[in-house]
Write a protein that binds this DNA or RNA. Structure first.
Length: 881
RNA sequence: GGGUGAUUAGCUCAGUUGGUUAGAGCGCCUGCUCGACAUGCAGGAGGUCACUGGUUCGAAUCCAGUAUCACCCACCA
């Protein structure tokens, strides 16, 4: 039974995960007849490596899964990964580039094959890393967003929405990433404030010598200008409406027109209008029938519509346009101008607003129902304030661009007829046009936004559109655990598709956790080099310590600023758990047999620790019910270290070592309690620290006991409510504190055993001192104890006061009068302040008149206590002088 | 421009519906190899809870405003 002197995480971690998985403990049995509890993992990208965000996210889910499993639920925690269209394609393209190739050299089919190969060999790293973290995922059910089953779900959703007119093709301004060569949705575009220029350009007005002046942040777009707008109410300029301007460089005649979109106050009051390269201009162009001139290709290089600028990259074109304007004397001025510029969320390239034909989801009808289920409280956000963010976005939601010009993903199931240009959209690939019957059809080249398939995740992973037992039992899922950064990308869309296609919400709770940041509050990223690698942390401090740290940090705020120091601290906690166990096992003896605790045989401190344990069990359960992981972690830490180890283990030593006045029976009962507390606490700690708890459990469990992972979560036990004994212990502890305080402050060396005189008439306190004298001697390092209600202290006594008790330590030869005086004076001034505050409160009529009776009584009690203590402290001080 | 949040000990953070003598860990100071643990034990210092008002018998906690700092959303050329 002997344990090593310190906890070695590595061995336990390797051993147990494999064992649990082999035993099938992670597998959810549809037919087990138990109440379901289900979570779907936010599918990490196949390109992903476990970072802090994943670690936090999955630790919290695992705590919930393990906890519910112990509570006897049928737990399904669904694992899987996301094909991550752009991200994955980028990775493989980069590999090709290293060989000097592009995807076009391979062609679509070969490229796709290459990505699959990459996925099998280099992707999926994260699965092993999730195992390291201890995640009790049901690996037998692992899914991938490009699986056949999920693809079928995607197709079904596309076809249905298309048939209902909710998916349509449109010619619109979208966000174009010229590096990824694809369209992006609005939320895939990240805006950053950048320092730029505002170029003021003179456009000649036809038939006059005059100019108008437009201002722009993107001068190269003027090549595609097809009008100039003025606010019709702008009295300075509205006489020009109907006239014509000459577009410099291109020498194109463009109309000057009125549109209320133009802000009179901004700039010169003239707006150059480029319908093919700006969303607002596009709208104006539609209103005024302007020509839409696309001047760039998909690489953001100027095309044939840009005249002599053809072939120049957008920034080179910008330079040349500006230079040429200046040469012509048409550049009025250049101002510094800060403006927000969109960037690709995958590669950070500046996004170009670009006119192109794309597929969109008409989102409003879906959003309306998704808003309602949250408004009605069917879905609950925790913390609740995230609902606001959700509503804010949903109310202002805009159509979702779902087509991507990529090769990796779900290909859009739309088939164009070359003969009649009808579009056929069906569940199975058609071999002829659905309208004219021509076999001359071709499939759309584009793929769907990655988030289109993840939007279906809660039901597609369970077999939808088939009716499966999994769906029946585990849908809707119990909770979704995720970060606030993907509320729009993912959470909102799952709610929309769930309500639409399952006719039911996808989950009842959405627990939104914080984002992990570095010690300076920065978002962790490789480019900043501020990444704390979870794998390194696990290696260094052990997985349990790491998990416990994340749980302890998971307060319901926005950010978690992780410090390695804290992880180190919790690795000490693991060691503390280990060593307390070691101590217990050393003392139980080989012939120990756990028995049912007999309340009649329990001593006061046994009852106290059981009472406290009982509350801990209850409070941890309640904290978990409310997703207050940090509170649960703190309760565990506090109980184990500050109550069980610091007090109970120390107290029990006297009984185990059978010192004077200790019966064999007392010793035996102490052992039973030690084992009982250890046993229960391992259960309570298991969801947080699965490895160390299973390891210890395996050493103390009876043959017939199950492994801890499937053992029963403890309940609050009414027969362990011992309020009197708890109160008794509070007083006892205070007595110890007081004596230790004197010893500490006076620097009395530990080997100097003091004698103590207690002066009291209080019956309970007398009883405590008499009964616990052995413990007082041991814990406060006291030699002899006297109770004397008439004691007259000596000048050389050090003293302490608590309610109904004065404590004296005769310290002749040891006392430092100056120190003792200072100590007493400090105590006095503290209690004086307290007393004054209470007296002031009680003498205020408004307080005594309006405050509840119990509060007033409480204050009165304090007043009595403080004044008694103050009086005695002052007496002691007088004696010193 | 709109919105959300933060501001509590040297540092990192707790503090649930207003009743506290405002807590923890780390760090700091003092003293300790006491038969589990120096990854430890005992003691201690350290905060006018950002600021200003208000509500209340009572505010770190509720309300309003100010300041500073984050983040999100938005088409101001």
């Amino acid at each position: 039974m002997e344990l090593s002197p310190s906890y070695e995480p590595k061995e336990a971690e390797e051993k147990w995960y494999e064992y649990w998985e082999k035993e099938g403990y992670f597998h959810a049995d549809v037919n087990d007849g138990k109440e379901p509890y289900s979570i779907v993992i936010p599918p990490p990208n196949v390109t992903g490596n476990l970072h802090m965000g994943h670690a936090l996210n999955n630790t919290l889910q695992d705590i919930l899964a393990r906890w519910q499993r112990m509570k006897g639920k049928s737990v399904l925690w669904m694992p899987g990964t996301d094909h991550a269209g752009i991200a994955t394609q980028n990775v493989v393209e980069r590999l090709l580039a290293a060989e000097g190739k592009t995807k076009h050299d391979l062609g679509r089919e070969a490229f796709e094959k290459k990505v699959w190969e990459w996925k099998e060999h280099s992707g999926n790293q994260i699965q092993g890393q999730l195992r390291r973290l201890g995640s009790s995922l049901d690996w037998e059910r692992e899914r991938f967003t490009l699986d056949a089953g999920l693809s079928k779900a995607v197709r079904k959703v596309f076809v249905t929405l298309y048939d209902e007119g909710l998916i349509y093709q449109g010619y619109r301004i979208i966000n174009w990433c010229s590096r990824c060569e694809t369209a992006l949705s609005d939320i895939e575009t990240e805006f950053q404030e950048l320092d730029g220029n505002l170029w003021h350009i003179k456009y000649p007005i036809k038939g006059t010598d005059e100019f108008l002046v437009v201002a722009t942040t993107r001068p190269e777009t003027m090549l595609g200008d097809s009008g100039v707008a003025i606010n019709p109410e702008d009295d300075r300029h509205n006489h020009l409406i109907g006239k014509t301007a000459i577009l410099p460089l291109m020498n194109r005649e463009i109309p000057i027109f009125g549109d209320s979109y133009v802000d009179k106050e901004f700039g010169s009051g003239f707006v150059k209008v480029t319908p093919a390269h700006d969303p607002n201009d596009f709208e104006m162009g539609k209103r005024h029938n302007l020509e839409e001139i696309i001047i760039m290709d998909e690489h953001a290089v100027i095309n044939e519509n840009g005249g002599e600028y053809k072939g120049l990259d957008r920034y080179a074109a910008r330079k040349k346009v500006v230079a040429d304007l200046e040469a012509l004397g048409l550049l009025l001025k250049v101002e510094k101008h800060e403006h927000s510029v969109g960037h690709c969320y995958r590669c950070s390239t500046v996004v170009e607003p670009y006119l192109s034909k794309q597929w969109f989801v008409k989102i409003k009808p879906l959003a309306d129902d998704a808003i309602k289920v949250v408004e009605d409280g069917k879905i609950r956000f925790v913390p609740k304030n995230w609902e606001k963010t959700y509503f804010e976005w949903m109310y202002n939601i805009r159509d979702w661009c779902i087509s991507r010009q990529l090769w990796w993903g779900h290909r859009i199931p739309a088939f164009y007829c070359e003969d009649c240009s009808h579009i056929t959209v069906t569940m199975d690939d058609p071999d002829k046009c659905g309208k004219c019957g021509s076999a001359n059809i071709r499939q759309d080249e584009d793929v769907l936004d990655t988030w289109f398939s993840s939007a279906l995740w809660p039901f597609s992973t369970m077999g939808w559109p088939d009716e499966t037992p999994e769906l029946k039992k585990y849908y809707p899922t119990s909770v979704l655990v995720t970060g606030f950064d993907i509320i729009f990308f993912w959470v909102a869309r799952m709610i929309m598709t769930g309500v639409k296609f399952m006719k039911d919400i996808p989950f009842t709770d959405v627990y939104i956790h914080a984002l992990v940041r570095d010690e300076h509050g920065q978002k962790m990223s490789k480019s900043k080099g501020n990444v704390i690698d979870p794998l390194v942390m696990m290696d260094q401090y052990g997985t349990d310590a790491f998990r416990f740290t994340l749980a302890a940090f998971a307060a319901q705020g926005r950010d978690i600023i992780l410090s390695e120091k804290r992880i180190e601290g919790y690795s000490s906690f693991c060691n503390k758990i280990w060593n307390a166990t070691r101590f217990i096992l050393m003392n139980l003896g080989d012939d120990f047999k756990p028995e049912k605790l007999n309340p009649d045989k329990l001593e006061v401190f046994d009852k106290w620790i059981l009472h406290s344990l009982n509350n801990t069990v209850k409070n941890v359960s309640e904290a978990l019910e409310q997703y207050r992981f940090n509170e649960a972690a703190n309760l565990i830490y506090e109980f184990w270290w500050n109550e069980f180890c610091d007090w109970y283990l120390e107290l029990v030593k006297q009984r185990l070592y059978a010192k004077v006045n200790i019966s064999a029976e007392s010793s035996a009962s102490a052992k039973q309690v030690l084992f009982f507390v250890l046993h229960k606490m391992l259960l309570v700690m298991h969801p947080f620290m699965p490895f160390i708890t299973e390891e210890i459990w395996s050493r103390i469990k009876a043959e017939s006991d199950s492994d801890i992972i499937i053992s029963q979560w403890p309940d609050f036990d009414k027969s362990f409510v011992f309020n009197e004994d708890a109160n008794y212990t509070v007083i006892f502890k205070e007595i110890i504190y007081k004596i230790r305080n004197i010893r500490g402050e006076m620097n009395i060396p530990p080997d100097k055993k003091a004698s103590v005189v207690f002066k009291t008439t209080n019956v309970l306190i007398k009883k405590i001192i008499e009964t616990e004298s052995v413990h007082i001697q041991a814990l406060a390092k006291v030699e002899s104890i006297t109770i004397n209600s008439d004691y007259q202290p000596d000048k050389t006594d050090a003293s302490a006061v608590m309610q109904d008790l004065e404590i004296f330590l005769p310290l002749s030869g040891l006392i430092d009068v100056e120190k003792e005086t200072a100590r007493l004076e400090k105590e006095i001034s503290k209690i004086k302040a307290d007393l004054e505050r209470v007296v002031a409160k009680l003498s205020s009529e408004s307080f005594t008149g309006k405050a509840p009776l119990e509060i007033i009584e409480k204050e009165k009690g304090k007043e009595r206590e403080y004044s008694e203590i103050l009086g005695k402290l002052q007496d002691s001080l007088l004696k010193l002088k």
